[in-house]
């Protein structure tokens, strides 16, 4: 399944988000506001429900007074940004060597079967997106996955089940619904 680029209206930034953007831009000398781009994109992505549409990226360009292409160039370079819509919960399973040695392949397969999707896809109910990630800096505690800002380590099929249930019960922070 390949999701086509869907036009999305710009997110309405909350007052906290605006203040946060103002604050991080303030970390840089006058005229160097472009330096804040990654932090601003993280903030705006969160406000926009976990992904950046072209329109939302144009908004980032306006915030920072730069050209839209400068935002696209950056957004496509860094792997954390979702440029297609994603589910409420995004599971990013580390697939790199050290985790593979302790069975990350099995966890990925287990998740694919359990959620009935392939890596890169989103469940039809829009709840879960499954992705793989490169080493997330938890190699001693693998297999592991990241969901939102949280790390889930020492994964087993049982722990994955628990996590999915916890998401369904709304106990885990997911993407904003916009």
């Amino acid at each position: 399944m390949k999701i086509e680029i869907t036009e999305q209206k710009r997110p309405v930034l909350s007052e906290e988000a605006k203040a946060e953007i103002q604050r991080v831009i303030g970390h840089y000398p006058e005229g160097r506001q472009k330096s804040a781009i990654l932090r601003v994109m993280h903030i705006v992505e969160e406000e926009a429900g976990g992904w950046l549409s072209p329109d939302t990226m144009d908004m980032v360009a306006e915030i920072l007074s730069i050209e839209p292409i400068e935002v696209y160039e950056v957004a496509t370079f860094y792997t954390m940004f979702n440029l297609q819509p994603v589910g409420k919960y995004v599971f990013e399973v580390c697939r790199t060597g050290p985790c593979m040695l302790v069975g990350s392949d099995n966890i990925i397969t287990y998740l694919e079967n359990k959620l009935n999707i392939k890596v890169g896809e989103t469940t039809t109910d829009g709840m879960f997106t499954l992705k793989t990630a490169e080493c997330l800096g938890a190699c001693g505690y693998g297999p592991m996955l990241q969901c939102g800002e949280e790390y889930h380590e020492y994964l087993t099929p049982e722990k994955v089940d628990e996590l999915i249930e916890a998401c369904r019960r709304g106990e885990i922070k997911g993407n904003k619904v916009v």
Binding site: I5, P54, P68, Y72, E73, T76, F77
Partner: peptide, 15 residues
């Protein structure tokens, strides 16, 4: 500009 990276890098206007 140049979008994506590594051997997926490409010249593009994105949209």
């Amino acid at each position: 500009g140049v979008l994506n990276r590594g051997d997926h890098a490409e010249i593009s206007t994105y949209i």
